[in-house]
Design a protein around this nucleic acid. Structure first.
Length: 939
RNA sequence: GGGCGAUUAGCUCAGUUGGUUAGAGCGCUUGCUUUACACGCAAGAGGCCAGAGGUUCGAGUCCUCUAUCGCCCACCA
């Protein structure tokens, strides 16, 4: 049986996502709906997806990205904008290299053992194997991105963009090599940028160490948290205004243990209040000391190897691990009575973002991006509003960071990534290329040295590259930088050229992503049409890592902003607000969640109560509530489909006539909600938009309209509510589709099969136009009328519940309609049936009433409901209740009349607000009169 | 040391140009096999919107201060 032949009666009672989702996703991709329909006359909508790590697994953060971006994408596509959502993946240098190294370790292999080339082969194999898991998982989330345009950061296009950018910036002097103090991770064995260091406050100690004066009498005491670095000390600094130390000016002290004489210098960087007021200067291992050292011309001594062990400069400590060395030095200082004090001390320690090993600041030759000239224009575009950050408070965070930005260390001593497009001539620079070998090769007689020296010993460059642990190039060597490898050395014409061994920071390629994915540096059609992109949607945690750098590099490369809006979402936490982590065991796997609750429910949950920039919590309770809503939609549709099968009287459903008040009402409400949704969508308030459609669908369409329509259908009334029901349902499906794409498409297809082909519906709801609110359909009076109907019904139900009268028992009700609501007598069937009021009588105000002492009553705006309850009404209680209502009413009256008699209010408040208050006052007065009337009858 | 966010019903959260008697979901209480849905229907309880000042005709919403929690940035050795 095909789906078309399936009768509505056979539709399952509960929505079954598993039987729907993968089939529909295939239907969408087969239909080619995800690819943009380029139309030069239209402004496109473009989102470039933040590329997940190529070896990653989908987590809820990705699911949130996919959901929010899919909502925007589907909405714009339905609005008719040429819409491109471009997916991709990031090679994620350090992260991926670490994962692969870990897996090699299980085989007893190391990357050095394999050599660069073999290692990279292994990484590519890994990428082939796992590179598409996230893509497949994104598809399960319903992501409607254009897979035909998928990009990987190491693809030829983006790679050429990287090399081009590098070469351009180098030519402009904005990329340079320098010897600077950088963050070094001894475990990852690479330099890191400042952003890749996590500073965490930890309990530690401040050691007070005596440095004897060279002249033999007395000492200076310095305070340090890292005693092992004293091996690299080349000076001691005091504040020049510190009188305690003025006698030391021009003198020298002796470095403990090594007895190296050190000059005492005066420098403002020293805070006399801190510690002892004297600072040991280790330019090779501390950023502040480096600067002090530069100011005073102190030499730089690097006392550590790149693996965190001490080197020859450390003398007796050579070969020790830096922390073992710390202990050893403390012992030796103690013995020499040079350790004056140990003070418990909390301070922040920098750890590697990736592996949590304590980062060692050290002086090293690295490539840097000079950011000052890039930062200014990047600040301007945010200041002048060309780029709008949502929520806007992050604009201040961005600007503040930009103002204090420092040069960006972009070289990494890794193998996986974009290799730096710089080459060196072995003939010219042979003396400047320093090759280091791992300790393990020392036994084989392999010691480090310059290329020239090693080559004279018969080692080939290939061997050096394969076996070395690191290769550094002295600053005097001139790199040949270009997009493609140079054929010959421009200086000597030699052809023995070798490429810089380092790769670029992963974020370097990420910074180009919005234009490199669209074809830059070529003058590509996609680039011309889709760039600048519209929205960059990502987490606020990578505002600096990524967003800031995209803006700088985008402006530098294309001369244009990379995107108009930056939408920053918050982090997802567990139901107690804790960060999700494997060790805590509180991780919700999105795939598990969508299998248990359905993709639409997961997406709905991720958007419920979601506000830009705010963290959110997720829980099984929320997922369940979302699943219930999806099921509600399913069942409302199931009902509608059943009716259509029974009586397919659907003429004019696309723009049905609304002679019936109920029809007019629901269409008015639909358009009002559509208009609110439009506003929220335009303002990126997806949570609010979703809430609007949820409330409309459940509380108005299902709870009232469908219930009222049932009665008309059963009675065979004319006009039939069916065309309106179908109209509103179909429009609602479209409104909801960006949020819950699967269930809406599934229902929409079933609906479409039952509608005349001539109606010209498109193939899929995802390309059906998004409902445009029609102001002409808004009908305030009708909304007020039906509001009163529902209030009358509620009032009667309320009395029924209060007096515990079972639904089976008829309940007589008398409704006194005010003159303006007199026409509501036409709604008698609905009131009678929904409230189970039998008999239901209408009468004008002033007509004789049932005996007051045997009547429960409700005073509404526009009607009084009287319910005779022989023997059930407690007159005193009823009087008490009425008196309480009267009190509340009088209080409101008091407040309203005060407000309205206040000339400040009537003079300053907008006329419509004053008018509204006046209307309220009148309504309240009328209410007061009617309550008093009822009370009088009770006397 | 700077900056940001949160503080609203028992719980989780909305509430975006200041304008009714502050909303939702979950949970709770009561009653319902009402032929779309018990993943449901109906009725209900529950809130000095963290505290104190201020601006305003009017403040959950704007300003100042305070408290608690969380986050980010920063070269206090």
């Amino acid at each position: 049986m095909t789906q078309a032949e399936q009768s509505a009666a056979d539709i399952p009672k509960a929505y079954d996502p598993a039987s729907v989702e993968q089939r529909l996703y295939k239907f969408w991709t087969d239909g080619g709906f995800f690819a943009p329909k380029v139309d030069p006359s239209k402004e496109p909508f473009t989102i470039i997806m933040p590329p997940p790590n190529v070896t990653g697994e989908l987590h809820l953060g990705h699911a949130l990205v996919a959901t929010l971006e899919d909502i925007m994408t589907r909405w714009h596509r339905m609005k008719g904008d040429p819409t491109l959502w471009l997916p991709g993946a990031d090679h994620a240098g350090i992260a991926t290299q670490m994962v692969v190294e870990r897996s090699l370790a299980e085989e007893g292999l190391t990357r050095q053992g394999l050599g660069r080339e073999k290692f990279l082969e292994r990484v590519w194999q890994w990428v082939e194997l796992y590179g598409h898991t996230i893509d497949e998982q994104q598809k399960r989330l319903g992501a409607s991105c254009d897979w035909s345009r998928r990009r990987f950061t190491l693809d030829e296009g983006p790679s050429r963009a990287v090399r081009t950018t590098f070469a351009n910036l180098f030519d402009k002097g904005l990329i340079y090599r320098g010897e600077r103090i950088i963050n070094w991770c001894p475990r990852c064995s690479t330099a890191l940028s400042d952003l890749e260091v996590q500073h965490v406050e930890e309990q530690s100690f401040l050691y007070h160490i005596r440095y004897p004066l060279e002249e033999g009498v007395g000492h200076v005491t310095v305070a340090t948290t890292r005693p092992e670095t004293l091996l690299g000390d080349t000076g001691v600094a005091v504040n020049p205004d510190d009188e305690r130390y003025s006698h030391l000016s021009g003198k020298r002290v002796l470095l403990p243990v090594l007895d190296r004489p050190l000059p005492v210098v005066g420098d403002d960087a020293v805070d006399p209040e801190f510690g002892t007021g004297a600072l040991k200067i280790t330019p090779g291992h501390d950023p502040v000391d480096f600067e002090v050292g530069q100011r005073h011309g102190l030499p730089i001594i690097t006392a550590m190897n790149l693996d965190g062990t001490m080197n020859a400069e450390a003398g007796p400590y050579e070969g020790m691990d830096r922390f073992a060395c710390r202990e050893a030095i403390l012992r030796d200082l103690e013995e020499d009575s040079l350790l004056e004090a140990i003070e418990p001390y909390a301070h922040s320690i920098g750890r590697c973002d990736r592996c949590s090993v304590v980062v060692e600041p050290l002086v090293s030759k690295q490539w840097f991006v000079s950011v000052d000239s890039l930062a200014k224009p990047a600040m301007d575009v945010v200041l002048d509003g060309r780029i709008k950050i949502i929520p806007d408070r992050f604009a201040r965070v961005y600007l503040n960071w930009m103002e204090n930005i420092r040069d960006w260390c972009i070289s990494r001593q890794l193998w996986w990534g974009h290799r730096i497009p710089a080459w060196y001539c072995l003939d010219c620079a042979g003396d400047s290329i320093q090759v280091l070998f791992p300790e393990s090769l020392a036994a084989e007689g392999l010691a480090g040295g310059t290329y020239r020296a090693l080559s004279e010993k018969g080692l080939s460059w290939a061997d050096m590259e394969a076996k070395s642990s690191h290769i550094f190039v002295e600053l005097d060597a001139s790199p040949i930088v270009g997009v493609e490898p140079p054929a010959a050395c421009p200086a000597c014409g030699g052809s023995d050229l070798v490429q810089d061994p380092d790769v670029l920071d992963t974020w370097f390629s990420s910074a180009l992503w919005p234009h490199s994915t669209l074809g830059w540096p070529d003058d590509d059609d996609d680039l011309r049409y889709f760039h600048p992109t519209t929205v960059m949607e990502t987490g606020y945690d990578i505002l600096f890592f990524w967003v800031a750098r995209m803006i700088m590099m985008g402006l530098a490369n294309t001369g244009d902003i990379p995107f108009r809006y930056v939408y920053l979402h918050g982090l997802i936490r567990d139901e107690h607000g804790a960060k999700m982590s494997k060790t805590r065991g509180n991780v919700t796997d999105p795939i598990d969640a969508l299998e248990e609750y359905g993709t639409d429910a997961l997406r709905f949950t991720l958007v419920t109560g979601n506000t830009p920039g705010n963290d959110m919590r997720i829980s099984a309770g929320k997922l369940g509530a979302s699943r219930n809503f999806v099921n509600k939609v399913w069942n409302a549709a199931r009902y509608a489909l059943t009716i259509i099968d029974e009586s397919p009287a659907l003429q004019g459903w696309q723009s049905p006539s609304t002679e019936h008040r109920q029809d007019r009402w629901i269409v008015s409400r639909l358009n009002r909600v559509a208009s609110r949704i439009q506003r929220h969508m335009e303002e990126f308030q997806f949570g609010e938009a979703q809430r609007e459609v949820h409330d409309f669908f459940w509380n108005e369409l299902c709870d009232w309209y469908i219930e009222m329509a049932k009665l008309r259908l059963r009675a065979g009334e004319e006009p039939s509510p069916l065309p309106v029901l179908v109209h509103v349902l179909e429009k609602s499906l479209r409104l909801m589709h960006p949020f819950i794409p699967f269930v809406t498409e599934e229902i929409w297809q079933s609906l479409k099969e039952r509608l005349p082909e001539a109606d010209g519906l498109p193939e899929s709801i995802m390309v059906a136009p998004y409902p445009v609110p029609d102001d002409a359909a808004l009908d305030q009076d009708t909304e007020e009328e039906i509001d009163l109907v529902t209030e009358i019904v509620r009032a009667i139900r309320n009395v029924r519940a209060e007096f515990k009268i079972p639904p089976s028992q008829p309940l007589q009700a008398v409704v006194e309609l005010s003159a303006s609501m007199a026409a509501l007598e036409q709604e008698a069937p609905a009131i009678r049936s929904l409230a189970r009021a039998e008999p239901l009588l209408f009468q004008a105000e002033g007509a004789p009433r049932p005996p007051a002492d045997k009547t429960a009553s409700a005073v509404l705006r526009g009607a009084t409901v009287l319910i005779p309850l022989e023997g059930l009404v407690d007159t005193d209680k009823e009087r008490g209740r009425l008196e309480q209502e009267l009190q509340e009413c009088l209080q409101n009256l008091e407040r309203l009349s005060q407000r309205l008699s206040n000339t400040e209010f009537t003079g300053k408040a907008p006329a419509e607000v004053v008018e509204r208050e006046r209307g309220r006052l009148e309504g309240m007065e009328e209410r007061r009169d009617r309550i008093q009337e009822l009370l009088a009858q009770l006397e």
